[in-house]
């Protein structure tokens, strides 16, 4: 099988998986199931592409699907603040930065020697088995669905209280803030290091 065909097969199987799980979700659990299936396909599919894809940049783009899928889970669970924070920080910030770095690499499809035949075949085989089992309804029980798709009702008010109330998340909040500050200061320090500090070996990172 040529590289191109293998790639096509992979994406076809991925699409079948996605449509299959979405259809099954719709049939068994209505809109909630449909949503869950879509987000699950996004998350897992993005992750699969990220691992499998030979081009580093494509892998990075596939991460976007994963991040969005995870955000979708948060939405289903009714925590829309978390979902939007996930999108804002991971898609808008982290992924953009990641791409900024990754794009400097050559657009060479053969430069990565990650999973070639073994992993891909295993993935496809597993995927097909999973799909068949799902569609026929044998073996695998469905996950328990969230009771309802609740209308998200997060208000700034509640978030503010949750972050600053000593009984709730103030410790986590402060810890995260502290961590980020340390990271920021460290980044500034690294960026401002002088030429003399570097030995030639260090330069060849």
């Amino acid at each position: 099988m040529s590289e191109l065909n293998r790639q096509r097969l992979f994406y076809t199987v991925l699409a079948f998986l996605a449509f299959g799980s979405a259809g099954k979700g719709l049939l068994e659990a209505g809109v909630e199931g449909l949503m869950f299936s879509i987000f699950a396909s996004l998350t897992l599919g993005g992750a699969a592409v990220c691992i499998w894809e030979r081009s580093v940049v494509r892998s990075a783009f596939a991460l976007m699907a994963t991040f969005l899928g995870v955000a979708g889970f948060f939405l289903i669970l009714g925590s829309d603040f978390l979902a939007m924070a996930q999108v804002l920080i991971y898609v808008g910030g982290v992924l953009a930065l990641l791409l900024f770095g990754v794009m400097l690499t050559k657009p060479d499809l053969n430069e990565r020697s990650l999973p070639r035949i073994g992993a891909a075949t295993a993935l496809i085989g597993g995927g097909i088995a999973f799909l068949v089992s799902q569609m026929v309804g044998v073996g695998v029980k469905t996950w328990a669905m969230a009771e309802t798709l609740e209308e998200p009702t997060t208000k700034a008010h509640d978030i503010g209280i949750a972050f600053l109330d000593p009984k709730q998340y103030v410790v986590a909040f402060e810890l995260a803030a502290f961590l980020l500050t340390v990271a920021l200061v460290a980044a500034v320090y690294i960026a401002r290091r002088r030429t003399e500090d570097f030995t030639p070996e260090e330069g060849q990172v």
Binding site: F61, M64, D80, M84, V87, A96, P107, P152, A156
Partner: peptide, 28 residues
């Protein structure tokens, strides 16, 4: 009816960046 309206707008609006970056990279 979104109680996080502006947050949603900023978050989803930021995904367009990825599209632009993708366009730039894919053009080769």
């Amino acid at each position: 009816r979104m109680d996080l309206g502006v947050f949603t707008i900023l978050a989803l609006g930021s995904t367009t960046t990825i599209g632009v970056v993708m366009a730039g990279w894919a053009s080769n």
